[in-house]
Amino acid sequence: MQDAEKALKKMRSLGHTPDAQTFHSMVTGYAAVGGKYLEVTELWGEMKSLASAISMKFDQELLDSVLYTFVRGGFFARANEVVAMMEKGNMFIDKYKYRMLFLKYHKTLYKGKAPKIQTESQLSKREAALSFKRWVGLT
């Protein structure tokens, strides 16, 4: 992955814009290494900016990989963004797969009542997770 990161930095420094295949390779690599959720989040931010700036289209396989990584890592606000992009593009999303993934890694997340004292960040994370949970049909 270090070589891939160096190659991506070199590509950017030479003025080349990464394409969907480049992003797919990076996301797949980070997923294989495991625990590289922040790096995938950074890639997602770049992907969103490219999608809006130059109307770059991402394929279903790439967005599915990103969504899988975000759900596994518990980044539900980002997962909801990917779901929205996939639904906007009329792509198939296997809700059963994500329901099982949620149950495997986050089964007890946000069960019961919300704590009385919560920061704004905690509240937004909770709302994003509950929104995703509703989307997969667990509420």
Rank of each mutant, 00 (worst) to 15 (best):
K104N: 09
H24E: 12
F23C: 00
T28S: 15
L130I: 06
G74H: 02
Q2K: 13
S13D: 15
G137C: 06
R134W: 05
K57V: 11
A20K: 02
V71F: 02
A114Y: 04
S25P: 02
T139C: 13
T119H: 09
K113T: 06
K9P: 02
E87Q: 11
L123Y: 07
D3C: 09
S55T: 12
L138A: 06
A114H: 07
I117D: 12
T119C: 13
M100N: 09
G74I: 01
L101V: 07
S49R: 13
Q122P: 00
T28L: 15
V40A: 01
L109V: 05
Q60S: 15
G15Y: 06
G15R: 11
G112T: 04
Y110D: 11
A77T: 11
S131Q: 14
R99Q: 13
A4V: 10
G34E: 14
K48Y: 01
K36L: 15
K9S: 14
Y96C: 08
G45E: 07
K95D: 06
R78C: 01
D59N: 15
V27C: 05
M91G: 00
E120T: 12
S25Q: 14
S55F: 11
A53G: 07
T69I: 05
T28P: 01
A20V: 05
T41W: 04
G29T: 12
K57E: 12
V83K: 04
F58L: 04
M26F: 15
M85Q: 10
R78W: 01
K125V: 10
S121K: 15
K111I: 09
V66F: 00
S52E: 14
Y98E: 02
A4W: 04
E127S: 11
R99D: 05
A114T: 11
M1W: 06
E42W: 08
L43K: 00
L103K: 08
E39M: 09
F102Q: 00
G35E: 08
V27F: 09
F76S: 00
V82Q: 01
R78I: 03
A53K: 14
Y105M: 13
A79E: 04
N80D: 08
Q118F: 03
E46C: 07
M86H: 01
L43T: 01
K57D: 10
G137S: 07
Q21A: 14
M85E: 07
L103G: 08
E5F: 11
E120L: 12
G15D: 07
E46G: 09
K113I: 04
K10W: 08
I117R: 08
N80G: 06
F92C: 08
L38I: 13
M86F: 02
K107C: 07
L14H: 12
A84V: 05
T108D: 14
M85N: 03
V83C: 07
D59L: 01
A32M: 10
F76N: 02
H106R: 00
H106P: 00
G35S: 10
T28K: 15
H106M: 03
H24G: 05
L109I: 02
F92R: 12
Y30L: 05
V66Q: 00
